[in-house]
Amino acid sequence: MLSVPAGLLFPTRVSDGSPVMGMIENSTIGRISAVCLYLIAERHDPESFWQPWIASLPSESDAFYHALSYQEEDMVHFQASSFRELRMRKLANLEREYTEQVVPLLEKLPTRADAQAAGLKNLTREDLTKEVFIWAYSVVTTRAIFPGLLSDKERREEVPLLVLGPLTDSFAHGRGATAISYDAVRQRCIFSALEAVQRGERLSVGIGVTSNMELLANRGQLFTENPNNFVLIKFQLDQTGDMHAAARQAMMTSLNLTTPTTYVVRKGEMPQGLLTSLRIQSLTPVEFSAYDKALNSPVSRATVSLMSTAKYC
């Protein structure tokens, strides 16, 4: 469907005068943060090769839709969701990354006053603010493709860990309808159709096993009908006011089931442990005496089915 040369994958072709290489040398800065610094430096350089692409990116003043940019009034809608906590943790991590990893590198940049005095248009310490870093981070995380998250079917042999640049950043992120491969000889990133695509249809790449909550917190987007969505269900055996409480607890123990336990429940799959726990919790006094044998055997689909049938006979 599409192929792009390595030279159109950011951060190749960075400006000759980019200070980033010197800044990150011998530092422990992460890959994503390093790409963010390259992006900030290229945006600052009007002569950058990347200007046509960078001009198409949203600016800090635009609503750039990353969850990190949400205001308090936006977060009101997430009152009962753990998304609020996840976002706060994400924001705190990013601020720590800026403070601990980026700020120490700023010493390698000139101050604005020094740059002006020398008649230079270089990136200065004052240009690399936390807000600018968050902007760059949101651009990278919302627009890049991370082939490492994809299934083997969607990722063929050796591919870059991050694919970012013009055109490739305009794929919809959701349905894994595209395979990515890299031709090392021709130095091209190649995108092939995994599913039939009709003319005019939006092209889409996968997101890996990522739920909508993680997507929203990490990439600022949602995927309609995301099969990886999940809910957390906490099970706790009711051990009060029931003469069979001890028996229920013994059954749970014999089946290596602990209480309380939080289960991750995804669409179309119910954890066996949760099903079993719920069944043990719902056993009636009659079932305790009549189906002792069944209960003493390991819980399986057959024994659970037997008990369910017997209950309604």
Partner: peptide, 14 residues
């Protein structure tokens, strides 16, 4: 506000 990449012709699966 953004841009979307769309197919210019039909593509077969695979």
């Amino acid at each position: 506000d953004g841009m979307a990449l769309v197919a210019k012709r039909d593509f077969a699966a695979g």
